[in-house]
């Protein structure tokens, strides 16, 4: 027969199909994003630069609390935060935004948040390379501790996967969540030491904040990039466990609720 057979329901063919769908959907998402605005992909670089300028103005120039080396310190925090925040927000809305499609065709719903997580990770990879170049020019050359970067970045990525998937799982049932997500993320940004150093947190709060994996990871990342300092293995192990647990919880939540999405009004 001259037609293509539809995919069978199980087996390795299904997994390969998932990867092909994920990859092409991500390409489509990036293409569409490029066409949606005048500056297109340049926004990936302009947005963190604008945020850096704003925070530098307030914290360094006006409040005078920045100190020496505040600009690179801030830049690293904002670039990482931008990645984390975009991933959580975009992935968080992904299932809810695709309910019409979920009504029509049998697709694995995990594909929708994963497309955004992958697209945001690709964007971040580009921005991160630019960041490394900027740091080098600013007098922070590459150092041996760079070898720990893949591990640190993977852990941050897993936290984003966990946060994004948990939100994605609940958003179709509680669409009101989208109104509070931005506020929650703003609070989380300040609790993650993006604009101030972990050392400046009063001793009474430090043990509590140390449970925030994003804070610990951003702090370790700054240590590597600015001071050539290797991350503390014990702290890293603890946040790695939290990050993996978050990601697994996210996957489990989506899978558990998947049967309900085709029944929800789009």
């Amino acid at each position: 027969m001259g037609y293509a057979r539809a995919a069978s329901r199980r087996g390795p063919r299904m997994r390969l199909h998932f990867l092909e769908l994920l990859w092409f959907s991500t390409y489509a998402e990036l293409r569409a994003e490029r066409s949606r605005s005048y500056l297109g992909l340049l926004w990936w670089l302009v947005e963190p630069a604008l945020m850096m300028a704003a925070f530098w103005l307030v914290f360094d120039r006006i409040l005078g609390s920045g100190g020496p080396g505040y600009l690179p310190f801030l830049l690293i925090g904002l670039v990482v935060w931008q990645w984390f925040k975009s991933s959580v927000v975009h992935a968080g809305q992904a299932i809810w935004m695709n309910l019409v499609l979920i009504h029509q065709v049998r697709v694995p719903v995990l594909i929708f948040p994963f497309v955004h997580l992958l697209a945001d990770a690709i964007k971040f990879a580009v921005v991160f390379v630019v960041l490394l170049a900027v740091l080098w020019l600013a007098g922070y050359p590459p150092n041996p501790a760079y070898l720990s970067l893949p591990l640190l970045l993977s852990c941050i990525g897993l936290c984003a996967v966990g946060g994004g998937l948990l939100l994605a799982a609940l958003m179709p049932l509680l669409p009101d969540l989208r109104f509070v997500v931005e506020q929650l993320l703003a609070v989380l940004m300040f609790l993650s030491g993006i604009v101030f150093a972990f050392e400046r947190v009063p001793a009474a709060y430090a043990p509590w904040l140390a449970w925030n994996p994003v804070l610990v990871l951003v702090d370790a990342l700054r240590g590597v990039l600015l001071h050539g300092r290797w991350p503390d293995p014990a702290a890293l192990l603890r946040v790695a466990v939290i990050a993996v647990a978050l990601a697994l919880a996210g996957v489990a939540a989506v899978r558990r609720l998947a049967a309900r999405y085709p029944k929800l009004a789009a």
Partner: peptide, 9 residues
């Protein structure tokens, strides 16, 4: 994209 969503390789 549509073909992939319909289950084609």
């Amino acid at each position: 994209l549509c073909g992939l969503r319909l289950g084609l390789r």
